[in-house]
Every structure is written in C-alpha cells, then in structure tokens.
Design a protein around this nucleic acid. Structure first.
Length: 735
DNA sequence: TAACAGAGAAAAAAA
DNA sequence: TTCTCTGTTA
C-alpha cells in the first residue's frame, strides 16, 4: 500500500487541528471496529472525511482500500468534495457512494457472475409499480384483491430481509398467492433484464455470498469501511456490510461451509459506523436501529465514541431536545452540550386556527428579516406536506419569497421519463416497461385494445411485447404498430457513432416529443426540461464514459434536485424529514398538535410514538439560535375543520425553557365555524368559547351524551384539556 | 381517443 | 380540500 505523496506542511497535523478530544480519538482510531454515536451538530461529516484523509495521508491505506457508504447522493458528493479539499487525491479512485450506487458499481463490474445482462436497467419505484400492474394484468389477477402497492411492498420487504420468493414462508392462501406473484415478478424482471432498487442490494449481496473468490478479493481489498447514518441501514444493508467486511453471516450456512472448505482466514475490515439512534426516523421504510446493537455484538465492538459536543445550537435549544428525547426508552444514551450560552428561550405560540398560525409565522419572519436575517437561513418545518398550503398562501399574500422542498424531481418528470423510455428502447428493445410508456406517446393511434392483443401474443409466446409487435399480430392497428417498430429501428440504426447528447437529441426529435410539447400550450416548461436533458447528457460524458446504459443507470439512481424556485433569498419550507441534516438560524416548528405531531396513525403504538418523538428531536436540533414552536387549536384537514390540543411533546419540554408568546390569549377571538355534529341542546358546540370558575376560559373541542349525561371536552390552554359533566361543572358560554 | 364526472383517500421518502 | 384513479360519454 503506497502512501499518498504529500506536499507542503505535514498533512496529518494540519488535518487534525481544531478537533475536540472525542473527534480526534475517532479520527485516529486504529483498525478496529468502532461505533461513533454522533449527536446532532457534533461534526459528524467532518470526522468521517478527516478520518479518510488521515488514513490516506499517513499511508496506512491506499485509496483502493477504502469504502465509504452513505444514503444520499448529496451526502456522498459532500464527502468526496471535502476529502479532495483536504488531500490532493483523485476522488474517483475512492469507493465512496450510496449503497445503491456502490452495488450498481459492483454489478456492472461483475454482471456475468451476478447473472445479469451487461446492459441491465434499473427500475425506480414508479417503474417497479408499473411493472407490477402489468404483471397482474397479464396473469389476470384481481387487483382489488391484490393491490399492486401491497404486492410491491411485499416483494421489497422480503428482498430487504434477504428472502427470495422460494424462501418466503406462507401459511395461508393469501400469502401463498403473494409468494407466487413475487416469483412471477422475478421471472418477468429476468426476462426483461431489469432490476429494482432492492434487487441491486440483494443481487450484490448474493454475488458476494456465493462467489468465494470474488468475496475474498474484496475482503482483501477493503481494509476500512466507513458507514454514514448507520441508524438508517436496513437488515439487508447490514448483512451486505458484514459480508464485505469479512464477517461470516450466521444466517447463511452455505457461507460457513465455503469458508471452512477454503480454510482461509478472512481478513476483517475495520468498520467505522457513524450514527445516532436518536435521529432514527426511517423505520417506516425499513431502517432497523437494532443494527447498532447487533453491530456491537457481532463485531465485538470495544470502541464506542460519543460525540456530544454540539457546535450548532444555543443551550436552551439543546436542553429542550435533551429533555424531550429522555422520554424514549432503550436509547444508547447521549446528552448534547455546548460551550455557547443558553440563548433565547423557545418561543411558543398557540393560534386559534391554522390561518392565524401562518400569519404568526409571516409576522415573525418579516420581523427577523427586517433585523437583517437572511430568509434562506430560516425554515418553516411541518409534519406533513398538506400543511404547507396554508403557509404558502399567507407567505404569498405577504409577498415573502419562499421555497418549498419536496415534489417532483428532474428525472421523475413525465417528459423526461418519456425521453428516457425512448433511450431505453434504443438500448434494449425487450424493455416492456419502456415500450408501453411511449408506444402511444405522442399519440399514434395505438389504443388499449391493440396493447391487450400485443400483450396476449407476447405472453403466449413467452417473449417481449416488442417481439409481438414485430410479428405483426396487432389486428386493426397493425399499420400503426408497424410504424412504431420502424421508428425505433430507425433510431437504433442511427445510434451507432452518435455521442450520448446527440443520441438524446435524436430521440426527443424523432419520437415526436419535441413537436408534441411545442404544440402544447402548456408545454413550454417541458420543452426547457428536454433541452436540459440534452445538457445533462453532455455534462455526463465529460466525467463518465459515453454510454447510454451508464447514463440511464445514473438517471435512476440520482433523480436530481427537488423542484425549487430560482436562487433568490427565500424562506425554506419543508417537512421535518426533509430537514434532517440541515441547520438554520431560525426554525419554526408548526402544527405541534396531538393527531398531527405525533400523527394519528402512530398514536396507538408506543414504538411509533418514539419515532415521532425522535422526529421532534430532529426538528428542534435544526435550530441554531431561534426556535419557534407553534400550534393551532383548529385547522382545515381533509376539507374539514379539526380541533386539537397541544402535542404531548410540548409538555415534555421543561416549562422554564419556554416563553409563551400569547398566554392568556382570548379564545373568543376565534371565528365562528359550523358545528361538526348536530347542534347540541346545551349550545356548547365544538369551537364555542366557555368559562370555568377554576380553569378559566377555554374552547369546546368535543362533547357527547344528552340531558343529564351530557359531557363536554374543553381545552383550557394552560390548565389543560378536561372532560366535564355539564350537570355538575359550572360552565358558562362566553359571547 | 380524450375530456369529464364521481368516488375515495389523504404521513414521512432515498435510491 | 384536493389529488388520483376509474369508468363513462362525446
């Protein structure tokens, strides 16, 4: 292993400057398995990149010996950028990427051993769903009884547990059928030469598991494996890591045999797992926090380092976050601290309605902005996307520029997907997914009936729809189908000798996409996007091989930026999930109400409540200096006014850290609303303001019973929420 | 084939 | 409320 040539002052000392003792210890660990519990804002990325730079610059390992894995392309890119800023190194020789990106790399290199066609295509989740719908149709399965989404989930969940169809246990007819469909789906994918996201993982896992020489090669090669966001790994990803690290997999007897047979001692890579169990918010998509404990025991981890010093937030914000998260059980344990002062208290605002809440945000943002705070350094966070509407409306009215995260991304747009489908067909005519997407777009007179016929022919002969189309079994529309076949054949014939951007240009022109959107009065944006696709292809060939297949793979793996307004100074709006990893001077956490945050769907399950609490923890720790928490007593939800009370999470934050901006707020100011139920005879409809001699004023949020048995539930704000028997309680209607 | 009406559902999301 | 899906109609 050669050392990296170093120019200038000794790299290692300047590298390590400014690290705190824990960070330094983590960065300079010897080759042992280690778990780094990195709290929010504790300099996690810095530790990861500095460790890689340190390992390289001290000559302990060559770039080939390092594998670093992340979840998002953004994180991977950031890591590469920061490493190359610290070291004069060709970043491309490093294996740094997402799980899926690295698996793709592995499978492209060893496609034959993995049993894949050389030009295999990657299905994104929309493609996968389409493929499943097509399968169900082909098999004549009632999709009411077997919803495509459920089947997709079934398949992915099993793959993520490392189970092939034949390994699925089924005790009832329903599961037996799902299992059967899983098998059929795999067959279809194999025939079409496509792999879905979960398959990328599973296939490369199996490749390493079943191919001893290959595994030994990579075991010998990767001496240091670094994992970012380890708490977000799923079971399959963890097993994949174990395999790469040279750990035998107890779940897999075959592997044990191979290893005894070869008699080789497997060298074990030093796995450096960085994560934070308190920020695990992706259980719903398969993340298994338990991997952190499993890692400790499976690898006999002796080194656990806690990065608890926070460089982001003021003390009060950290205290609030710490206090909140202690309500979770079974944590690995961590307490953030800072050298900064306590700072401002957390400002709490209880609004009468979602409109008023939005208005509050507008007013505060405007005030902060007037004081010189950049809008882009402020964020409004919410639990669910539906909440953004009211906020956007108020911001728009106030003329405050804002940017909403989420929504469609570049490679997910329909015009882009259409263009890519033509490219896919050029690369592989057997790709039924791609064919069906564009055979009649732009419209060329090939309707459903024709497609059904083609589908039947294909099924009958066990071939692709393309084959069926070529053989001319298209009934009345045979001519139209023939023209389509000719169109694609023509493109394929011209493809030779064209560069990738030229090919993209050709595809969008000859397919008629360009003309179609030119004639479409709302097609202007789409035309621009198609132009951008050509530029993207041009950019791609600058840094990569001129290969359609590689370009398509990248398009699937990196869907591109979320839709966002052009780069002026704008307030940031996003879900709490989307905010993970980001930080802002001021954060507005909105909708902190029972039923919304924690969400209704998690209220009956302690595990889910804990995940919601971690989500709140993530939200709070995004703020550097100012944190606002707001809630609304009533809000429009699904077209109905819904009344709610403050979130339990709010009461889990010590009162002395909070500053209620509108304590003693008069609920009578609430606009009249239609009662939810028939008006009760006592007149205490939902939303009515009432007064109680002891609890003060409040708002009726529910009632039941009649006559002597009548009860009403009242939100008294500071005094809490109470059910009161009307017959006894001295309640009076205000106003 | 395309436009339209009515039903039903609505948590979060990377690759 | 608003989006998406399905089935119907011109």
């Amino acid at each position: 292993m050669g050392a990296i040539p170093i120019s200038g002052p000794p790299m290692s000392s300047s590298l390590l400057n400014g690290l705190n003792p824990e960070q330094l210890a983590a960065v300079t660990l010897p080759a042992v398995p280690a778990l780094i519990l990195a709290g929010a804002g504790s300099g996690k990325t810095r530790v990861l990149t500095t460790r890689i730079a340190w390992l390289l610059s001290t000559g302990q390992v060559s770039p080939q010996g390092i594998l670093a894995v992340t979840f998002t392309n953004k994180a991977a890119k950031e890591m590469l950028t920061r490493i190359s800023a610290q070291l004069p190194i060709n970043a491309r020789s490093l294996w740094v990427g997402t799980f899926h990106g690295l698996c793709n790399r592995l499978l492209r290199l060893h496609w034959r051993d993995a049993g894949l066609p050389q030009a295999f295509q990657i299905l994104d989740s929309a493609d996968q769903l389409a493929a499943i719908k097509r399968l169900l149709k082909a098999l004549n399965i009632d999709d009411e009884k077997y919803p495509p989404r459920d089947l997709m989930h079934f398949i992915n969940a099993n793959k993520e547990e490392g189970r092939r169809a034949h390994e699925v246990e089924s005790w009832d007819d329903y599961t037996r059928q799902l299992k059967q469909l899983y098998e059929e789906y795999e067959r279809q994918c194999r025939r079409e030469g496509v792999v879905d996201f979960a398959e990328l993982l599973l296939r490369s896992y199996e490749l390493l598991r079943d191919n001893a020489p290959l595994r030994q090669h990579y075991n010998a090669r990767f001496r240091y494996i670094l994992v970012d966001e380890f708490q977000d790994t799923n079971r399959l990803q963890y097993r994949w890591l174990k395999l790469l690290a040279g750990k035998t997999d107890p779940l897999n007897r075959a592997l044990g045999k191979v290893d005894t047979a070869t008699g080789e001692t497997i060298p074990e890579a030093a796995v450096f797992a960085v994560g934070d169990d308190d920020q695990s918010i992706y259980a719903f998509r398969g993340a298994n926090v338990g991997n952190m404990r499993d890692f400790e025991s499976d690898f006999a981890v002796q080194t656990v380092i806690r990065l608890e010093q926070n460089y982001r937030s003021h003390g009060n914000i950290l205290d609030a976050a710490n206090a909140l998260i202690t309500h979770n059980r079974g944590r690995l344990g961590k307490n953030l601290w800072t050298e900064e002062c306590a700072g401002d208290p957390i400002r709490v605002f209880e609004a009468a309605s979602d409109f008023e809440e939005a208005q509050f945000v507008v007013d505060e943002v405007r005030q902060l902005n007037r004081e010189g705070q950049a809008l882009s350094d402020m964020a409004v966070l919410y639990r669910s996307n539906a909440q953004s509407r009211v906020l956007e409306h108020a911001l728009f009215q106030a003329g405050l520029p804002y940017r909403v995260y989420g929504g469609l991304r570049f490679f997910e747009r329909q015009e882009i997907k259409h263009a890519l489908a033509y490219l896919r067909l050029i690369a592989n005519v057997e790709d039924d997914n791609a064919l069906l997407r564009v055979i009649n777009f732009p419209v060329r007179g090939i309707g459903n009936r024709t497609l059904e016929l083609l589908g039947e022919t294909a099924r009958g002969t066990g071939t692709s729809i393309w084959q069926a189309a070529c053989s001319g079994g298209a009934g009345r529309s045979a001519a139209a189908v023939g023209r389509f076949v000719q169109l694609i054949e023509g493109m394929r014939a011209q493809a030779d000798g064209l560069s990738l951007p030229e090919l993209v240009q050709l595809a969008i022109e000859q397919s008629g996409l360009l003309e179609f959107y030119r004639n479409d009065k709302e097609g202007q944006d789409r035309l621009e996007n198609l132009e951008q696709l050509v530029s993207a292809a041009a950019r791609f060939v600058q840094d990569n091989e001129d290969s359609v297949v590689d370009f398509l793979a990248q398009a699937s793996l990196e869907a591109g930026e979320h839709e966002a307004a052009p780069g002026q100074d704008a307030l940031q709006l996003m879900t709490v999930h989307a905010a993970k990893g980001l930080e802002f001077h001021a954060v507005f956490l909105t909708g902190v109400e029972e039923g919304l945050f924690p969400h209704d769907n998690s209220i009956n399950d302690p595990q889910s409540i804990e995940e919601e609490r971690r989500l709140a923890y993530v939200a709070i720790t995004r703020a550097r200096r100012r944190l606002y928490i707001s809630l609304a007593q009533s809000r429009m939800l699904h077209g109905q006014t819904r009344f709610s009370i403050a979130s339990r999470f709010l009461s889990e934050i010590p009162e002395d850290l909070l500053k209620w901006l509108n304590r003693g707020y008069a609920p009578a100011a609430m606009p009249a609303r239609k009662p939810e139920k028939a008006a009760p005879e006592h007149g205490m409809r939902v939303g009515a303001s009432v007064a109680h001699p002891k609890f003060g004023t409040g708002v009726v949020i529910d009632y039941d019973g009649t006559g002597k048995g009548a009860n009403v539930q009242v939100n008294f704000g500071a005094a809490g929420v109470k059910w009161l028997a009307l017959d006894y309680a001295k309640l009076t209607l205000v106003s």
